[in-house]
Design a binder for these strands. Structure first.
Length: 980
DNA sequence: CAGTGAGCGAGCTTCCGCTTGACTT
């Protein structure tokens, strides 16, 4: 047993953030060591590389949850956290007691539990929580420890599981039906949908114009603006009276629409007229200061007032937090600690005087849905706030401006209400030719600014900001007269709903209880990274891909993109946290959907994989093109339009709402919407750069089909293609010469450059050789056997030699660099750099992964080895074991081995999809894996030999859809049959 | 969305939340 350390008892306290650890250590002093976990330390494996070898063969491993056994999560310490965990483990071993002091919310509880699991402490462990980092709060927390709340942890695990299952099950549907590498998730898919729905409104929007008259009225020395609102007793139409879908007046609006001529005539007739005050109403108002900052409001104001992106705001706030200038910046609580309230109130009194202090300390209620309130509001740190002025030299520009904002908002929150009066005046009169009119004027007077001295909240709407301004009216009363001094007719246009900005999207998400303070900024990053949105100025504009993705999710996974999906999930999680419901049944309902209950995600995904018509989903409804026969579709090379045979690409920078019928016609009228590079000097035909199904290419002539066409070489871009280069490409295929009585041509083909002589062909090593290869060179290449003439590319990049082992070669292949020893292959994964490989590492990689391919056929039927299976295994032994395997096989009686090996090597060599097709008799026993519709379709086509076109209507299916379904069903069947 | 000749090592993409550096340009 090790001797006890000479120091007295030692308690290890673990919190989440290093900056917090530093502060707390100061308050705790002797006997306490405070460390941080730096967030979560374990998680479900992110991808195959993170899955422990032991679980790799499991069907559920890709999800990281054993969905067949109570959704048992597979937790792994992420590589970047390994060091952290080792350090904590060491400190834990040296401590006499451990206190887990992570945040008091679902995630914090979970972090504490993971720490407990991972550190496996042998000393007493306590859990403590505090909501403010003040000496008193921490000492109180130390005095009242508790245990880890397993129910809360279960709720977190349920949340984690739902997010994983949603993300990892639905994303693959998008890869298959829309485009690879897309993603779906509980938060991002709703965020994207919000952008798309707003954009759809904009696309449907029809703008309208109306006129009114602005009068500058004079009352004594003062002038003020008044606007025409009634003519001949009828109210004039304004923005709200128009239907955004038609641009016409809403039915039953009962208003008068003023045209230009009439407005000008009234304006002319009003000049110099006398107007009488019909009524003058004055209403007092008070307004209260906004609540102290939480993450979302900080991001909003950072954007409105400082023009900072959500990310910049957070990065700057992080620096302020780490420097000890502000409290924690990721919070959803508007609560201020007692210390903060005192500090704010003292400062108000000192700087603005007692009159500006709110009589009672203000307490702000919980602001957002699903708030967890583990921290305070964002405020200046400490028990006395440092003034912005005092920090001028100490902080950088952005830091100072953000601190100033936080300071003002915090101080203002303890100041008195602003008081003032709003005034509304109605003026009556008539034009020179006796048309009776009424005008309105309104103004606001601030009598006592209160908190406005320190802080005015920003607005996203410039018009609203103007209205809010302090606009005084002269003191008018009923019966007074004023003069219409200056008169102007004005036209107005209705505006479509504004696009979301980062700030307003965060606000909308928060309003729906979606996302957390720590993720608001990254949500915006995610939807941009996936190509769902791009920024135009401050606006977030959804892409065509976003339209396709959102449509797919709305039509086929509607529940998942409901705005209240998260809200419902939160309710369930609360039940779990409260111990009234359990994680496993909840997840069962969500994922498996037993007894027809719940979301039933897995069956739904399986069904939709077969049923969703990819082409239909890629076709986007554009309201303004309806009835025109034009379809917009997202293709492999971006969005394009189609009308009959005609196609036209949509410019990359065109946003969906910019596509009107006129624009579409204009794009169609351009020759194929492609770029004309110039004219071929020899033939006089135009030369075009185009983007085709098989990539970028150039054509000679703009008709269809063109006179000639040629693909660009890899790496060449359409944008920087010149006429000279295009003409050179169009010289292909090139006649190299005549050899053995046949012409030798150099072609640029589907698989790259190659030479063709009669029926024979050879690949070329580089594209440039197409222009340079000479006849003797070509003849030499034809002398080489086929498929070995890949030139330099075929040589290994490196060779690693070993004693007692065949050398390992590093080769460059279609899928990038890979290792091979002639029997096993292993593609290098990302993170495995060619330059850092050494013989040791190369062997490790190959031995670890080279085995994998043999596992697949073996695992499905491991228990019952049928004849085919047994044969398979033998073949595998041979492939995997090299010499050993051969010896084993040879030991078997030859008569048995030979036929078995023949079949086996055939199956083993080809991948499942390439293997010889199975007969209907072989497939039929497996129709149970199909849905009803699929089964009906397959039976009709394969058993009765009928055509899909014929069967589809009977099943109530679209022909296109049915074809897709048939294909899918056949895949499923084959897969099921091969797996036994 | 153009249309030309074969045959090869697959393996991975993706979620949401909690936290900061360690990297390069």
């Amino acid at each position: 047993m090790p001797m006890p350390k000479s120091s007295p008892s030692r308690t290890l306290v673990i919190v989440e953030s290093p900056a917090k650890a530093k502060t707390i250590e100061k308050y705790l002093g002797q006997g306490y060591a405070v460390e941080s976990s730096v967030g979560h330390i374990r998680d479900l494996p992110r991808s195959a590389a993170d899955i422990p070898e032991k679980y790799k063969g499991q069907a559920w491993a890709r999800l990281g949850l054993d969905v067949e056994h109570d959704f048992q999560p597979l937790y792994v310490v992420s590589p970047e956290k390994k060091q952290k965990v080792a350090q904590l483990r060491k400190l834990a071993a040296e401590a006499d007691e451990i206190i887990l002091a992570t945040d008091d919310d679902r995630e914090g509880e979970s972090i504490a539990w993971h720490l407990y699991q991972e550190l496996k402490p042998k000393v007493p462990v306590k859990r403590m929580v505090f909501h403010e980092i003040t000496r008193e709060a921490i000492q109180a927390a130390i005095a009242a420890p508790r245990q880890i709340d397993r129910n809360l942890v279960e709720a977190q695990e349920a949340r984690r599981a739902v997010d994983r299952l949603y993300g990892y099950e639905v994303s693959p549907v998008l890869w298959r039906k829309v485009a690879p590498k897309l993603s779906a998730g509980r938060v991002q898919s709703v965020a994207t949908r919000m952008l798309v729905e707003r954009e759809r409104e904009r696309m449907r929007f029809v703008s309208a114009t109306w006129w009114d008259v602005l009068v500058t009225a004079q009352a004594g020395e003062q002038t003020f603006p008044a606007r025409l609102t009634e003519v001949q007793g009828e109210r004039l139409a304004a923005g709200k009276d128009f239907d955004p879908l038609t641009g016409g007046l809403k039915p039953g609006a009962g208003v008068r629409l003023l045209g230009e001529a009439e407005a000008l005539s009234i304006a002319g007739g009003l000049k110099g007229q006398t107007l009488k005050v019909l009524s003058a109403e004055e209403k007092p108002f008070t307004s209260r200061p906004p609540a102290p900052f939480i993450t979302s409001t900080l991001q909003q104001e950072g954007s409105r007032k400082l023009r900072m992106s959500a990310q910049t705001t957070m990065r700057t706030a992080q620096r302020l937090y780490e420097g000890g200038y502000i409290t924690y910046m990721r919070t959803d609580s508007t609560n201020l600690s007692g210390e903060a309230v005192n500090a704010a109130r003292t400062q108000v009194k000192d700087m603005y005087g007692a009159a500006y202090l709110s009589p009672q300390p203000r307490v702000y209620a919980k602001k957002s849905k699903n708030a967890q309130e583990a921290h305070e509001a964002i405020r200046p740190a400490g028990s006395t706030f440092r003034t912005p002025e005092g920090l001028r030299g100490e902080l950088s520009g952005d830091e100072w401006r953000l601190y100033d904002l936080i300071w003002k908002r915090t101080v203002a929150s303890q100041m008195s209400d602003a008081r003032g009066r709003s005034l509304r005046v109605r003026l009556g009169g008539q034009t020179a030719d006796s048309v009776p009119v009424v005008l309105n004027a309104s103004g606001r007077t601030i009598d006592f600014p209160g908190f406005l001295r320190a802080y005015v909240e920003g607005s996203d709407d410039p018009a609203a900001a103007l209205e809010d301004r302090d606009t005084p009216l002269p003191p008018l009363k009923e019966g007074d007269v004023v003069q219409a001094q200056d008169v102007k007719a004005e036209d107005h246009e209705t505006q479509p709903p504004a696009r979301f900005t980062e700030a307003s999207l965060v606000q909308a998400l928060e309003g729906a209880g979606i996302g957390r303070p720590s993720t608001y900024a990254s949500i915006i990053g995610t939807i941009q990274d996936r190509g769902y949105a791009l920024k135009k100025g401050t606006a977030l504009v959804p892409s065509w891909t976003a339209f396709a993705t959102s449509a797919l999710l709305e039509h086929h996974f509607g529940t998942l993109v409901d705005y209240d999906f998260t809200a419902k999930m939160e309710e369930d999680l609360d039940e779990i946290a409260g111990g009234r419901e359990s994680r496993v049944p909840y997840l069962r309902r969500f994922y498996l959907g037993e007894d027809g209950q719940g979301m039933a995600l897995r069956p739904l995904v399986e069904r939709q994989m077969g049923e969703i018509d990819a082409r239909g989903i890629a076709t986007i409804t554009v309201p303004k093109l309806e009835g025109s026969g034009i379809e917009v579709r997202v293709g492999r090379y971006g969005p394009y339009m189609q009308r009959g045979e005609d196609k036209a690409n949509l410019p990359e920078d065109m946003t969906p709402d910019e596509l009107t019928l006129e624009v579409a016609e204009e794009l169609f009228s351009r020759p194929q919407g492609d770029r004309v590079l110039g004219e071929d000097p020899e033939s006089g035909h135009p030369v075009l750069a185009r983007a085709g199904r098989y990539g970028p290419y150039v054509t000679l002539g703009d008709e269809n089909p063109p006179l000639r066409s040629a693909s660009l070489f890899p790496g060449e871009k359409l944008e920087d293609l010149t006429l000279d280069r295009a003409l050179k490409l169009l010289t292909l295929p090139r006649l190299v010469g005549t050899s053995e009585g046949e012409e030798v041509w150099a072609h640029n083909g589907k698989f790259g450059p190659y030479l063709k002589r009669g029926g024979d062909s050879r690949s070329l090593a580089t594209h440039e050789q197409l222009f340079t290869v000479t006849l003797p060179e070509a003849e030499a290449i034809f002398q080489q056997p086929k498929f070995r003439g890949r030139g330099v590319a075929a040589a290994p990049l490196a060779t690693y030699e070993y004693e007692g082992r065949t050398p390992i070669l590093l080769k460059s292949g279609r899928f990038g660099p890979y290792l091979t020893d002639g029997e096993k292959n292993a593609t290098l994964r990302k993170g495995e750099d060619v330059n850092t490989l050494d013989p040791q590492r190369a062997r490790d990689i190959l031995e670890e992964r080279g085995k994998e391919p043999q596992k697949k056929p073996g695992k499905a039927g491991a228990k019952k080895a049928t004849g085919t299976k047994a044969a398979n295994n033998k073949a595998n032994n041979k492939a995997a074991g090299g010499k050993t395997g051969t010896r084993k096989a040879a030991a078997k009686p030859a008569a048995k081995t030979t036929p078995a090996r023949k079949t086996a090597s055939k199956t083993a060599k080809a991948s499942p999809s390439k293997a010889a097709p199975l007969t209907w008799a072989q497939l039929k026993p497996f129709v149970g894996v199909l849905s009803d519709a699929e089964r009906a379709l397959v039976t009709a086509t394969r058993e009765q030999g009928r055509k899909v076109e014929e069967v589809a209507p009977e099943l109530g299916l679209d022909v296109k859809k049915a074809k897709g379904m048939a294909l899918q069903a056949s895949k499923k069947l084959n897969q099921a049959a091969r797996q036994g």
